[in-house]
């Protein structure tokens, strides 16, 4: 299989795209793949912070595109995983510094360098979003179980369908099972019912995710974290493995339908 470019987008900001990219990158790299995470949020970069690589940035994506450095010079190697790299966004420029065709060229060049390219899309549906989805082979739409986030995800899916990007996959992030049970939060089933696309993962609400992100040590490295486990499962599903969905609560009919296995995962 050739290198795959996966873009993670959401429409709404603050739903966890950057955290998801960092964690999926780590999970894929931990399985021995060579992975490059690209921060597409030019002007508001933070993938470097979440990955704990901020102080090692010399060149960024705009330097590559404008020819001030070679691609490899802008690829920052992760401290923990030898197969994981980051191409940071430029902080002092804005989205217009990069065009969709620049991203296509960058994507083509990266394909020969690695197995997986994960692009962190900025929020919104404007230029930065266009840049992020243009080179993608596959798009993952991330949403929270909130009405506004789901509405924006629906809009983004509509745009992706109109641009003939193929049907995207869905990650539902930060689901709080207790709140769902009390009808204070949309259930995964409600979200799926509206968006009607393929589900590739559900990540439970987990406070340690935020703590880990602030420290620059993404949660996918933590064997005991349930959110970390969810991201590792999504990474395995990306590579084509058939991984049953985690049993977040055995009383929910969705889990029974989704998981092939009975009993606990």
């Amino acid at each position: 299989m050739g290198a795959q470019i996966v873009t993670i987008t959401s429409g709404k900001g603050g739903v966890g795209k950057t955290t998801a990219v960092a964690n999926l990158g780590i999970a894929l790299a931990a399985n021995g793949k060579k992975v490059v995470c690209v921060d597409g949020d030019i002007g508001l970069r933070n993938l470097d912070v979440v990955m704990g690589l901020e102080n090692r940035i010399v060149y960024d994506i705009v330097d590559v595109i404008e020819g001030r450095c070679r691609l490899r010079q802008a690829m920052i190697r992760d401290r923990r995983l030898p197969g994981l790299f980051l191409i940071p966004a430029a902080q002092t420029r804005d989205k217009t510094a990069v065009s969709p065709s620049d991203m296509l060229r960058l994507g083509a060049e990266l394909r020969s360098e690695c197995d997986w390219i994960l692009i962190d899309s900025p929020a919104g549906i404007e230029r930065g979003f266009k840049n992020a989805i243009t080179p993608a082979d596959r798009v993952i739409v991330l949403t929270n179980p909130e009405v506004s986030a789901v509405r924006d995800a629906d809009r983004v899916i509509g745009i992706l369908e109109a641009e003939e990007k193929g049907s995207p996959s869905l990650i539902i992030n930060r689901i709080d099972y207790d709140m769902v049970k009390n009808h204070d939060m949309l259930s995964a089933e409600d979200v799926l019912d509206l968006l009607a696309i393929d589900l590739i993962g559900i990540v439970p609400e987990d406070q340690t995710v935020l703590i880990a992100a602030n420290r620059g040590t993404p949660i996918a490295l933590d064997d005991k974290s349930r959110a970390g486990q969810a991201f590792r499962n999504i990474a395995r599903r990306l590579t084509g493995e058939d991984v049953p969905f985690m049993d977040l609560d055995s009383q929910d009919g969705l889990w029974q339908r989704l998981s092939r296995l009975t009993g606990r995962k």
């Binding site: 509405r151 629906d154 509509g158 369908e161």
Partner: peptide, 9 residues
């Protein structure tokens, strides 16, 4: 129209 009309359409 034989499709779902998503938000923004």
């Amino acid at each position: 129209l034989r499709r779902t009309l998503r938000s923004g359409t």
